[in-house]
Nucleic acid binder design. Structure first.
Lengths: 188, 188
DNA sequence: CAACGTATGTTGTTTATGCGACAACTGTAT
DNA sequence: ATACAGTTGTCGCATAAACAACATACGTTG
């Protein structure tokens, strides 16, 4: 099982991180990432600015953590982190990525900037790790197939999420699925 | 102006008290006061049980504080704490007490018990103090008129809040107003 | 250029909270 | 009666968070 982390740590830490996360995500809905200051975050979270630095190096580290958390939560919700490869799970994964990017685009004020590419890096890493985990029992190397599939999934999801008028997600995924599955069928 | 307290104190204290208050009020909606343990409160508030005792002597102190806070909030909302006596303000005060008791009866699971009389004491004290404040410039003693008016207001509001089928509040207050105002008109 | 306002990280100290343990009391069941 | 389980209020100690102050950097404005 992939490391989804709900470790037992000091409740104060949990609470503070939660407050920071929530504050940050709310702020992302109001202004774009660049214009958010650490002070903004801590004000809304009702914590001291110095405390922020006890948990995150800077707001970039927070963004990374935040994206990871949000995405992992969606993965967990569908228990995709405790399964193995098959077409059905792959379909769900594509669905999750599409939904995730779509939500990010509708919820966050984000003109083009580093935000986009940041999300790409973070999400791709998670998708790649998940695929690698699914294929963990393969006798042959899974690196290239997983890489290709990851790029394909992200590319399709990004495409989907940028559509002015998004088509029905289910139909979109139906079309997308075989294009991704083709390189993974050998592992089914 | 009466002491409505939003003092500057440690943000941790504010947060903790807020969590306790909220947890407590939510619990009141689920079970009756007697069956709520301190552990219940701190569990839901996500704070340590010992921390509770750093803020309140026991759950009775908390109840007192909670009722006071809730009621004062309603008073503040209508700026009744920064005005002087006139019929209009009196009308609003009666309205507030009626609404407050009514909300308490619909929101809280409360069969007959000490809860009821506890609320009475607390609310009456606030009403009395407020009336005394309104009449602060009177040359003659306001103690008896304020006492009578306080009892009348609470009695009417309690009556209203216990009705199975409550009549329209505005109409009720219209009827009630003159009965209370009669002893205060000399101060208008 | 200089003066200014604002945001960033960092530090040392103080304070609030978490934690585990304890004795005392309650009600309940055996 | 005795044992048991649960709640209460309190304690000392460990640790996270608040706070104020500081140096640094950056952009703006005069």
């Amino acid at each position: 099982m992939l490391p989804s982390l709900d470790e037992k740590l000091d409740p104060r830490v949990k609470r503070t991180r939660g407050l920071i996360l929530q504050s940050f995500e709310n702020l992302l809905a109001e202004k774009n990432f660049e214009s958010i200051s650490v002070q903004d975050i801590t004000d809304k979270a009702q914590i001291n600015r110095a405390t922020f630095y006890a948990h995150f190096q800077d707001k970039y580290t927070l963004l990374d953590y935040s994206i990871n958390q949000m995405f992992m939560q969606e993965i967990d919700k569908r228990t995709l982190n405790i399964c193995t490869y098959n077409t059905d799970n792959l379909r769900n994964l594509i669905l999750v990525v599409c939904e995730f990017l779509a939500r990010l685009h509708t919820d966050c004020v984000q003109p083009h900037n580093q935000f986009e590419s940041f999300v790409e890096t973070t999400v791709k890493k998670q998708v790649f790790d998940l695929l690698s985990y699914w294929l963990r029992n393969s006798k042959i190397s899974t690196e290239l197939p997983a890489t290709v599939a990851t790029s394909a999934i992200y590319g399709l999801a990004s495409h989907y999420s940028h559509r002015k008028k998004r088509p029905a997600l289910d139909r979109f995924v139906d079309e997308a699925l075989p294009l991704v599955a083709i390189n993974l069928e050998q592992f089914a």
